[in-house]
Design a protein around this nucleic acid. Structure first.
Length: 473
RNA sequence: GGCCCCGUCGUCUAGCGGUUAGGACGUCAGGUUUUCAUCCUGAAUAUCGCGGGUUCGAGUCCCGCCGGGGUCACCA
């Protein structure tokens, strides 16, 4: 295995925006390829035109771009084994389907939809009864000549076991009797997943097929095809699923979001990658902040957990808050652009970022925490008075003292303000909490803000005084 | 239902026959702080799903059971 050139692929179908569970598989595929210096390929499996949702492909590109899981080959950037969209490869599948027919690995099936439906009416778990498998060549020829619609089915072995070594699941063995003679080529001449993916994986020289465990049960069909073609099958790795908080498979119905939605909710790509990495994988205490290159270094495909992992938003929140703290204010400013009003001055925003980043969990937390710097809050005098047991007159006197200091102070800095206002507060008869909370409410209209004097500085001397004067006038 | 996979704190996990079963997130308490958050310290939370074996000794090996998940389309 060490001497094979590693090529992995993520092969989404454009039936909507992939949810975050699918993206975790993509991350693992990306890491596996890069760990061995190979290529990571993105292939679009759009063989089911009925379920195709316009715009899905663009969303898939967006996800990869956002997370930095950039494919080395894809419909977008091309590559030596294209096209990378299956509906553009239809003639290729035709050719290989014919090969299967020629070697007797596949057969024509003329069963109607109604007959198949009937089969399932008696038993909803019924397999295809292989009715057409035993048609004589004359019967097939005459049906074909009559123009009857048909599909191509795999002529699977009716005995024995399919055995293989799975990189994450270990040694696996499935009885062949459990497998169906699956449809390979549909009536409309378009292949199903089974045929298309096997042909493409081989033609695109995919060395490792790392995909979700939901594919485990159909692996015997894929292995059957490799053998029928006389091809060396790729290394297989089936990774566990992501479960919702209710321990059932993550799905749209359970509110499973796509990475794009998390991005819109203010989560950083670094945090999402990190979070996904730790779900089903272990490194130290699973809380180190890791970059993609670091993850590539650490990743070990043989150490992926076999259990399904439950999606826990609190861990994502933690990782996100840590990444936000780690980022420079300038970097954060760039990422904040779509989360704050465009008319806010960059200089001021930068100053505010430095104060707010330690208390933010997502990028969405910035705007609400900063808006009172840009618009004058409406503050009732009763709200000020509620901060202390002092009378209106006493509070006014304290404000007058504070305003005077702010107006006169030569060094309008947080430390100087702190020094002088604390001194005045001590002589005022107000407790620190009473004194400063009332000022806080006066300038911001709220009782939770970053450190008060830092807020004064950002507001500026003039605006601070203006707001303090306004409330008790 | 058949087949297959999985089963350590609420969550992600460490553990690879002998440990007081460890860490992180979360939770709670205390400290820091004029507020909130950050940060620091501490605490609680797992009879290792259950029951049998094997062994001097089992979370670690074997069997059964139970529980959870996946799959059984002309969907991927």
């Amino acid at each position: 295995m060490s001497d094979t050139h590693v090529r992995t692929r993520i092969a989404p179908s454009p039936t909507g925006t992939p949810h975050i569970g699918n993206t975790r598989t993509a991350l693992f595929d990306y890491l596996l390829a890069h760990k061995y210096g190979g290529e990571f390929i993105l292939r679009i499996e759009d063989t089911d035109q009925d379920r195709s949702v316009p715009g899905s492909i663009e969303k898939i590109y967006e996800i990869h771009h956002f997370l930095g899981l950039v494919p080395d080959e894809s419909p977008q950037v091309g590559g030596p084994f294209g096209p990378y969209i299956q509906t553009e490869r239809l003639d290729i599948y035709q050719k290989y389907a014919q090969l299967l027919l020629d070697t007797g690995a596949a057969y024509h099936c003329f069963c109607t939809e109604e007959r198949l439906k009937q089969l399932h009416e008696t038993n909803k778990f019924a397999k295809y009864d292989r009715f057409c498998r035993h048609l004589s060549s004359e019967e097939v020829a005459s049906k074909l000549a009559s123009g009857a619609p048909f599909v191509l089915r795999a002529k699977l072995s009716e005995t024995g076991f399919t055995v293989w070594h799975d990189l994450v699941q270990g040694k696996l063995s499935l009885p062949n009797t459990e497998c169906d003679d699956k449809v390979l080529m549909k009536t409309n001449g378009i292949p199903t997943y089974h045929l298309a993916s096997v042909v493409d994986d081989h033609l695109m020289k995919i060395s490792h097929v790392l995909r979700g465990v939901e594919w485990l049960a159909s692996t015997p069909i894929h292995l059957f095809l490799y053998e029928a073609f006389g091809w060396e099958p790729p290394v297989l790795a089936h990774v566990p699923l992501l479960l919702g908080p209710d321990k059932t498979k993550l799905s749209k119905r359970h509110g499973a979001k796509s990475v794009l939605e998390y991005a819109a909710d203010g989560y950083l790509p670094e945090a999402i990658n990190n979070f996904l990495f730790y779900l089903g994988f272990s490194y130290k205490d699973n809380s180190d902040l890791l970059t993609l290159p670091e993850m590539i270094e650490i990743f070990d495909e043989t150490k992926i957990q076999r259990q399904n992992a439950i999606f826990d938003i609190q861990r994502l929140n933690y990782l996100n808050s840590q990444w936000i703290k780690k980022l420079s204010s300038a970097d954060l400013f760039d990422r904040l652009k779509s989360f704050i009003p465009t008319d806010w001055s960059p200089e001021k925003v930068l100053q505010i970022i430095a104060l707010v980043k330690d208390r933010a969990f997502t990028l969405k937390d910035f705007a609400p925490a900063a808006e009172y710097f840009f618009s004058t809050p409406t503050v009732e005098s009763s709200a000020i008075l509620a901060q202390s047991a002092h009378s209106s007159a006493e509070t006014k006197a304290w404000f007058a003292t504070a305003i005077k200091i702010i107006e006169d102070i030569s060094d309008f800095s947080s430390t100087s303000l702190h020094e002088q206002l604390s001194e005045a507060q001590a002589a005022s008869g107000f407790s620190p909490k009473e004194a400063f909370m009332s000022l806080r409410v006066a300038i911001s209209g709220r009782n939770v803000t970053p450190p008060l004097f830092d807020c004064f500085v950002i507001l500026g001397r003039e605006e601070t005084v203006k707001r303090l004067q306004a409330v008790l006038s």
